[in-house]
């Protein structure tokens, strides 16, 4: 399969990339690792007129920690997240994306800008209360929370002439975490996945955050479960009771793999498992 024709440029600065994007008009697209975009182009589901490759733009790679916060460059490949265990749930989740070869090329910024609710990282960004930095013409920067980033299926708040340059999020030292993903084959997208962050104070759950992957046209948080857990003992019983609400407020699309009802069932089961793991239950 061969993509439709397009023009190509690989600018050496961010400003030039933003300019090329603006000059290229509405069918110009940014290229990072290409592991969401190129498959779509090969299937002719996408046919951009111009690809602006970010590979030569400096400053978009790497992971830094400063004052209890992480800064992750948009072009950081999933494999690098996977090999940075201090990132906690982000690292754990990145290690489940597709397969090693895909993780070596696919990037966190590319994945977030693509906005596929079946991708692994978007819902994890929600529970980490991360934000992304978007840079547009004239060097104008704005910060958008993960909560506001994902607007609909494959639709994000990134404007056509903006570049997602970095991800910022607090460190969650001391929080328990888990990522429970249900798929038939390891390379597949999640049929449903549940990410969890749990903060305990002794045996009590002080705070909990639960992310839902592929349960609507956007990634979601299971707020009802989170509220039900706060202040509760971190026991299998209270977790099982709270996890029963995991599908509340969701709207999972049926697909070849699973009906909407089955996905709701999976969300409840995977939520319980993720919480048990994150709470350190055996």
């Amino acid at each position: 399969m061969i993509p439709a024709e397009f023009d190509y440029t690989a600018p050496e600065t961010l400003d030039d990339a933003i300019k090329a994007l603006a000059d290229g008009g509405e069918d110009a697209k940014l290229l990072a690792g290409g592991h969401s975009l190129l498959p779509l182009m090969k299937l002719r589901l996408a046919a951009p007129s111009l690809l602006v490759d970010l590979r030569k733009v400096p400053g978009l790679h790497g992971i830094q920690r400063e004052d209890g916060n992480w800064r992750i460059g948009a072009l950081t490949p999933h494999a690098e997240l996977e090999h940075t265990p201090d990132l906690g749930v982000v690292s754990l989740t990145a290690g489940t994306i597709a397969d090693p070869q895909v993780r070596n090329r696919g990037t966190i910024g590319g994945s977030l800008a693509h906005g596929d609710p079946a991708s692994d990282l978007p819902a994890v960004m929600l529970i980490c209360e991360a934000s992304v930095t978007l840079q547009g013409a004239g060097g104008q920067q704005r910060s958008v929370s993960a909560n506001d980033l994902f607007q609909d299926y494959l639709e994000t708040a990134v404007e056509p002439t903006e570049v997602l340059t970095e991800i910022r999020m607090p460190a969650y030292d001391g929080w328990g975490f888990a990522y429970q993903k249900f798929n038939r084959r390891s390379e597949d997208w999640a049929m449903v996945a549940v990410s969890a962050l749990v903060k305990k104070n002794g045996d009590t759950i002080e705070d909990a955050r639960i992310g839902l992957t592929n349960m609507a046209s956007v990634p979601l948080r299971a707020h009802a479960v989170e509220e039900a857990l706060r202040g509760q003992p971190g026991t299998a019983d209270s977790i099982a009771r709270a996890a029963e609400q995991a599908a509340e407020g969701t709207d999972p699309p049926a697909d070849l793999n699973a009906s909407s009802d089955y996905k709701r069932h999976l969300a409840r089961v995977m939520c319980r498992r993720a919480l048990e793991e994150a709470a350190g239950l055996p």
Binding site: G34, L38, P39, L51, V102
Partner: peptide
Amino acid sequence: RAVKSCTVLAVQ
């Protein structure tokens, strides 16, 4: 690093 060359452009 191992990559799948069917999902990489030669220009990349």
